[in-house]
Amino acid sequence: MKKIIVEGLKYKYPLADSLALNDVTFDIKQGEFIGIIGKNLAGKSTLCQALVGLVPHFYKGAYGGKVIVDGLEVKNHSIADLSLKVGMVFQNPFTQVTGSKTTVYEEIAFGLENIGIPRTEIIERIDSVLDLLNIEQVKDHNPFDLSGGQMQRMAIASIIAMKPDILVLDEPTSQLDPAGSEEVFQAIQSLSKQGITVILAEHKMEKIAQYCDRVLLLNNGKVVDFDTPGKIFSREDLEGYGLTAPVYTRVCKALGVKKAGTDEYPVTLEEAERVLRGDGA
């Protein structure tokens, strides 16, 4: 089942000279884990925001083409309506804290209160997301007192509590230390396993290779390719788009060893280990 359909999407920010997204077309199936890669200003954030309606409703600007998320055409629905279908987590954990709540528990309730969920259900939902993202132990802390990793998991919990089927994340770990990033990726993966469709923009290619089913490669607002991590990272022209493949792929490329029976290079630590062991035998 197609969960997201993007057709000929064009978008220009107000005051900008050039298109931020230029004729973007792709679709995503229910339950897929999709990575978006591309150098800075390639259009990753804009595309993420187009999926939740911030583009065009928040920024205005010139908009063409179609984005259909779970049956709703983004252009014709408010951000609040869309938020029931698709949630978004941003880069900076700090600015996602509402600032109007004094505990993590209340913070997560914020969105649920806004969309009018009955009280008893609010409590059930909060208890379940606290457990899901493993932040139960800090539920009574002030949101601003959390570590970056905890704060970002709280942000995800706040979104997940609204029960969207689709989760969009824009470089959610760029401000976190490796341990914090790992916590967040583990949490996203467990959501993905529960059937939530995940779309993740990220610079850390090793993580993309490890977690994503398919990868969307953007350059100058256009889709260059949309394929499995193996196919994408085996491309010879990645550097031309300002990207480097995961270190495992680079080393195997240099040694000229591909995955058995395919035209692809390994993209994860495990794959590289397997291939390189086999190679020596």
Partner: peptide, 26 residues
């Protein structure tokens, strides 16, 4: 910058929802 980012984060959490608001606490 923070205000803009925070405004977006509030939006996607239904800040402008038309639904009648409910409350965590009785």
């Amino acid at each position: 910058i923070n205000t803009k980012e925070r405004a977006m984060a509030l939006e996607v959490r239904g800040f402008n929802s038309q639904a009648p608001k409910t409350y965590l606490y009785e």
